[in-house]
Design a protein around this nucleic acid. Structure first.
Length: 603
RNA sequence: GCGGGAGUAGCUCAGUGGAUAGAGCAGCGGUUUUCUAAACCGUUGGUCGGGAGUUCGAAUCUCCCCUCCCGUACCA
C-alpha cells in the first residue's frame, strides 16, 4: 500500500483528494481554526456561500455577527481566524486563496490549479451523483403527482403537477432516494354521481363508438351539473348514484369501469407524449375497502365527530380548523377525497414503508393538506403508527396574457394535448425556418419534439413553483433568455465541436494546461458550483434554482465559445478547452435530464 | 371576517440578513474570411407597493396600511 502510494505522482494524489463539496470543506477548515480560539464556541457557523464573482468563489459571513456577539472587531476576528488557519496549515494556498474584505468578510478564491484539478476529478454524471450528499440516501419516498380526475380531459393547469413532479422524482432519485411514483387518480368522487346521472338521463350509449368520448363526458358533466344547480331533485339523484356506486351496486360498478377504461386510455396519450412512467396508478377507488377502518379508528380515538349529519374532524387547537371542518364522510354517507387520502397514507405506510410522502398539488388545496396532515398526525399517534414525513409541494396557477387563469379566447379550458401538439408544431416551424441543411426530415421531427415538449416543461420549471406565472408562446420558444431552446442549442454546439474534432467528449484532456482567459476561468468557476446549486434545489425542491444555474452556465459557455476558439493547434490550450466543453456538456445534460428534458446532439 | 400568496426596470421574472439590487424582452449601438450568428459584446432604464421598527447591515425579519389573486361544510 505504502509502496503503491509513493508511486502515485503528486499531481494524481492531488486529484484524488480534491474537495468535492467546497463550501462544506471550507466550513470545516474554519471551524477547525475556530476551535483553537477561546472566544469561539460550538454555536459558531462560518456561513459559507457562493459570492459575487468579483469577490471570489465563496465568502464566509459568519464572523460578522460573531464578532459583534463577543465584543470584538469582526475584521480582527476574521484576521485571527485566518492566521490560525495558516498556522495549522489546513488550507493549501496553491489551491485556495483568501482575502479579508469590508467589515469582515472572508473571501475565498479557488486557484486555476484547483479548478483544473476539480474538473479533471469529477467528469461524469455519476461523479456528480454524490453531489447532494446523503440527504435522501436510503429513504423511501412516495411522490403523488399528476393525479388528475378521470372522466375529464387534462387541461393546461394539469401540466405543472406532472412536470414538477417528474423533476422532483428525478432529483430525489439522484440524491439516493428510492422513489415511488404514484398517480392518485380521482376516480371515486362526487363527479361520478353527476356524470352517471347525466349518462342515464341523456341516454348516452357508452358502448357505441364515439369520436372523442372524454369530450362527451365533459359535456355530460357540465350539463348534468347545470341541472343539479337548478333542480334539487336532480341533485339528489346524482348523490344517490354516487352512494350506489360506493356501496358496490353491480350495474353502477360496470358503468364506472367502462368510463374509467376510456379515461385512462386518454390520459395515457399525454403521459406518452411527456415520457412519464408511474410505478403505481392507484386511484381513490383502490382504497374503497379501506375506508371503514378510517371511519372506525377516527371515531374510536375521538378524533372525528358527527356534525350536521356529516363525520368531520375539528382541530380545537387551531385558530381556523377549530371551526372549519375536515369532512371525511358526507351526511348522505358518501366518502370524499379526504377519506381516500387518509386511507392512502395508511396504505403508503403499511405497503410501501414510506418514510416520506410528497404531494405535488396546486396551492389552492393547501387547506386540505394542512387538515389532512394534522388529522393523520393525531390518528397515527393514537394508534402508535410511525408518522411519515408529509409534504405538500404546492405550486401556483398558469395565467394568460390577461393575468387571469389561462383560457382560450372563447373562455374554454385549453386541452393539454392540444397545447403539447401546438408546442411541437411551433418548434417544427422554427427549426425548419432556420434550416440546418445537414438534417433529414426524420431529424427535424425528433428535434421539434424535443424542443417543443422541452420548451413547455422548461418554461414551467424555470418559474418559482409557488408563484403564478404568465404563459407566453413567444417567450418559451425563443432562443434568447432563460429558455429550453437556448440551453439545448448550447448542448448541440458542444456536440458539434466534438464532431468536428472527431473526438469523444472527455477524451484528449491529458495535456490540459491551467485556465488563463477570463472566459475560461469564469466558466470553470461556474461548473464547480453545480454541487452547491443541486443541494439548494433538493433542499427546497425548487427546480427553478437549477434552471437559473443552467441558464447562467450556458451564458458563460456561449461567451467562452465566442471568445476562445477551441479547435486550435496549440495542444495544451486546445486540450484544456476541450475539457471545459466536455464538462459543460456533462453538467448541462445532467441538469437538463434531472429536469426531465431530453437533449440533442444536433439541431 | 379569517387564512395563504403576490406587489422589484416599460413588460416577464430572479434575488441564501450581507458589499454598488440582477437577467431576458423591448429601446439604442456594435461583432461573422473563425468550432452551429438559433450566438456574442456594449449601453439606457429602479422612491424593491407605502410607513414604522429590529440589526453593524433589510427587497429579504417584525408590526401597521394599500392593491390584486386564491382558499374558507358536504367538489377535487
Amino acid at each position: 500500500m505504502t509502496k503503491l502510494a509513493t508511486n502515485i505522482s503528486l499531481v494524481e494524489h492531488l486529484f484524488m483528494d480534491i474537495w468535492f463539496n467546497i463550501p462544506k470543506e471550507l466550513s470545516e477548515v474554519i471551524l477547525q481554526a475556530a476551535a483553537e480560539i477561546p472566544y469561539f464556541d460550538k454555536s459558531f457557523n462560518p456561513d459559507i456561500r457562493t459570492t459575487d464573482p468579483r469577490f471570489g468563489d465563496f465568502q464566509a459571513n459568519g464572523v460578522l455577527s460573531w464578532g459583534k456577539n463577543v465584543g470584538q472587531n469582526p475584521r480582527q476576528v476574521a484576521q485571527k481566524l485566518m492566521e490560525t488557519v495558516e498556522q495549522l496549515g489546513i488550507l493549501d494556498p496553491t489551491l485556495v486563496g483568501y482575502e479579508i474584505a469590508g467589515p469582515g468578510f472572508i473571501n475565498f478564491q479557488l486557484t486555476t490549479k484547483f479548478l483544473l484539478s476539480w474538473l479533471k476529478r469529477y467528469r461524469k454524471e455519476d461523479d456528480l451523483k454524490t453531489a447532494a450528499g446523503d440527504i435522501y440516501r436510503g429513504k423511501r419516498i412516495v411522490v403523488d403527482f399528476s393525479s388528475p380526475n378521470s372522466s375529464k380531459q387534462m387541461h393546461v393547469g394539469h401540466i405543472r403537477s406532472i412536470v414538477i413532479g417528474e423533476a422532483i422524482c428525478r432529483l430525489l432519485t439522484f440524491c439516493g432516494a428510492y422513489v415511488i411514483r404514484d398517480n392518485h387518480i380521482g376516480d371515486w368522487g362526487t363527479q361520478y354521481g353527476i356524470l352517471m346521472m347525466a349518462i342515464k338521463r341523456f341516454d348516452y350509449n357508452l358502448k357505441a363508438p364515439h369520436k372523442n368520448p372524454l369530450n362527451d363526458f365533459e359535456t355530460l358533466y357540465r350539463e348534468g351539473n347545470a341541472l343539479v344547480e337548478k333542480d334539487q331533485k336532480v341533485g339528489e339523484k346524482a348523490r344517490e348514484e354516487l352512494v350506489k356506486l360506493q356501496n358496490g351496486d353491480l350495474d353502477s360498478l360496470s358503468l364506472w369501469k367502462e368510463i374509467n377504461k376510456i379515461s385512462l386510455q386518454a390520459l395515457q396519450e399525454i403521459y406518452d407524449l411527456l415520457d412519464i412512467h408511474f410505478d403505481e396508478t392507484l386511484g381513490e377507488s383502490y382504497y374503497r375497502d379501506q375506508l371503514n377502518r378510517v371511519y372506525q379508528e377516527l371515531i374510536e380515538t375521538g378524533i372525528a365527530e358527527e356534525s350536521q349529519g356529516a363525520l368531520v374532524v375539528f382541530h380545537r387547537e387551531h385558530s381556523r380548523y377549530k371551526t372549519q371542518p375536515f369532512i371525511i364522510r358526507k351526511s348522505d354517507g358518501a366518502s370524499l377525497y379526504s377519506t381516500t387520502d387518509l386511507a392512502t397514507i395508511l396504505y403508503r405506510h403499511e405497503h410501501f414503508q414510506a418514510d416520506e410522502i410528497n404531494y405535488v398539488v396546486d396551492s389552492r388545496q393547501s387547506d386540505h393538506f394542512e387538515q389532512l396532515f394534522l388529522t393523520v398526525r393525531k390518528w397515527f399517534f393514537a394508534k402508535g403508527i410511525p408518522l411519515p414525513k408529509l409534504k405538500h409541494i404546492s405550486f401556483g396557477t398558469i395565467l394568460g396574457e390577461d393575468r387571469k387563469a389561462i383560457k382560450t379566447r372563447s373562455g374554454e379550458q385549453i386541452k393539454l394535448k392540444d397545447l403539447l401538439n401546438e408546442a411541437v408544431h411551433r418548434a417544427f416551424n422554427i427549426v425548419c425556418k432556420k434550416k440546418n441543411p445537414d438534417l433529414t426530415n426524420e431529424e427535424y421531427k425528433d428535434i421539434s419534439h424535443v424542443v417543443g415538449i422541452g420548451a413547455v416543461r422548461y418554461a414551467d420549471l424555470m418559474q418559482n413553483r409557488t408563484s403564478d406565472y404568465v404563459f407566453s408562446w413567444d417567450k418559451l420558444l425563443s432562443f434568447e433568455g432563460n429558455t429550453a431552446p437556448y440551453l439545448l442549442y448550447a448542448v448541440a454546439r458542444i456536440y458539434s465541436i466534438f464532431r468536428r474534432a472527431k473526438l469523444q467528449p472527455g477524451s484528449n484532456e491529458n495535456n490540459a494546461s491551467e485556465f488563463e482567459t477570463e472566459t475560461e476561468i469564469a466558466l470553470a468557476q461556474k461548473l464547480i458550483q453545480f454541487v452547491t446549486v443541486l443541494e439548494q434545489t433538493v433542499n427546497d425542491l425548487r427546480p427553478h434554482f437549477l434552471c437559473t444555474y443552467l441558464y447562467e452556465l450556458s451564458g458563460l459557455f456561449s461567451a467562452f465559445y465566442n471568445a476562445d476558439k477551441v479547435l486550435i493547434s496549440n495542444q495544451k490550450i486546445r486540450s484544456r478547452r476541450l475539457l471545459l466543453c466536455a464538462r459543460t456538456l456533462t453538467v448541462l445534460e445532467t441538469g437538463l435530464h434531472l429536469l426531465g428534458l431530453n437533449t440533442l446532439a444536433k439541431m
